[in-house]
Nucleic acid binder design. Structure first.
Lengths: 211, 211
DNA sequence: TTCAAGTTGGACACTCTTGTCCAATTGGAC
DNA sequence: GTCCAATTGGACAAGAGTGTCCAACTTGAA
């Protein structure tokens, strides 16, 4: 498939990706125990043997899936965070706009949602994996948000003592409604996300806005 | 075991309880698919056949477990809610005290925690069951809290427009830190709960307190 | 003691899954 | 065309789980 013994850049990579993608779906739908290699193979349009050739066994498959999703999700999140308002003319408007984008990102990015559910469900089975995800996903998110909030406070737009706490509370307020919908299996529309963002930011600014 | 054909009040009920209790543990630990009847039987100190005699099959067992836990949890929560401050001298102090009790309740009541995890994990498999739990558990909680917050607002202790939203945000702020710990498998001590309650209530009152 | 319901444990058939082996096939590179 | 690696599908053993059947046992009550 390739001239040298290097690797298999095109076809095989595409096949590998199909496997990981299918595996992500099946794992998130049925959990670790409930997911069967056969189901993954069928969904990926690949023979079962090929999966074993690529990732060894079920454990390997699971770990690769989580690793791949974590990377993808983190990258997208970093991109999103660059839109955080730095020197806003209107704090409420700009923070609301960013918050709405944040929620839309959560809604639309299958990767993030899958990971969220995986982490919630399989934390017992793979504590180390979960810890990694948490520090590197959820924890990193919070500290990034905290840094940006600090910046807003420094620029005189907010009044914040403990920026980590403020970040946690901001995220809690922002995602409260979203989580409820998500757990019901519903996916908020863009307008709904905007509404949620408005309500969250309004409360957040009542607590942390400049007096 | 009993004179009439009525039922079996003592011994059998105790055995039934042991089964349901063990099943709750196993289901919550391993999820629906991962849980095995054998494991439940062993943990309950009962033969596998006895389980089938009582609940029919695995599905029946699962449903009975959830029903039993939901009842227990709801009852305990109602009791807790009676301690919500009605005519506080010091809103912050009394709301904080209540909030700390609320978090301690979450931490200590295995039933609630089990149910929470069950609902999170098995929502895909049993949507109806989950909907029931949500309306009757989580939803009921929020509307009860909303009613109490309204009362505080009426009495001039808070400034609230939308009490349902305020309740959701109160609960989000209050449980944000707790959830993070819980997901890591840690169980906050009483002191930690108090700290979380203080920080949550402080922010909540900055947003909704009397100016 | 006798009765009967509840309980037990073991054997069983059945299904599903994992992971391995292997011979046959494909398709690109030379 | 030839070569070679990736892929395929099918067969297979081993294990685990479900749900059933049943004969033997406990145990409280008549």
């Amino acid at each position: 498939m390739d001239t040298e013994t290097v690797e298999k850049p095109d076809l095989a990579k595409s096949k590998r990706d199909r496997i990981l993608e299918a595996a992500a779906t099946v794992f998130c739908q049925d959990g670790y125990t409930g997911a069967s290699i056969d189901a993954v193979a069928t969904k990926a349009g690949v023979s079962r043997q090929t999966i074993y050739n690529h990732v060894g066994d079920k454990d390997g498959l699971f770990k690769e899936v989580v690793a791949a999703l974590t990377d993808k999700s983190a990258a997208k999140f970093m991109l999103l965070m660059e839109e955080f308002p730095e020197k806003p003319d209107n704090v409420e408007a700009e923070l609301t706009a960013f918050s709405a984008r944040f929620l839309n990102h959560l809604t639309q990015d299958k990767t993030s949602r899958w990971l969220l559910r995986l982490a919630e469900n399989e934390s017992g089975r793979y504590p180390e994996l979960f810890t990694v995800w948490r520090e590197y996903g959820s924890g990193r998110k919070r500290s990034l948000v905290a840094a940006h909030l600090s910046q807003l406070a420094l620029n005189g737009h907010l009044e914040i003592d403990d920026s980590t706490l403020a970040a946690r509370q901001y995220l809690a307020l922002l995602t409260a409604e979203w989580r409820a919908e998500f757990q019901l299996g519903r996916f908020p529309s863009e307008d709904e996300c905007t509404g949620m963002a408005q309500r969250a930011v309004k409360t957040f600014l009542r607590a942390f806005g400049r007096r």
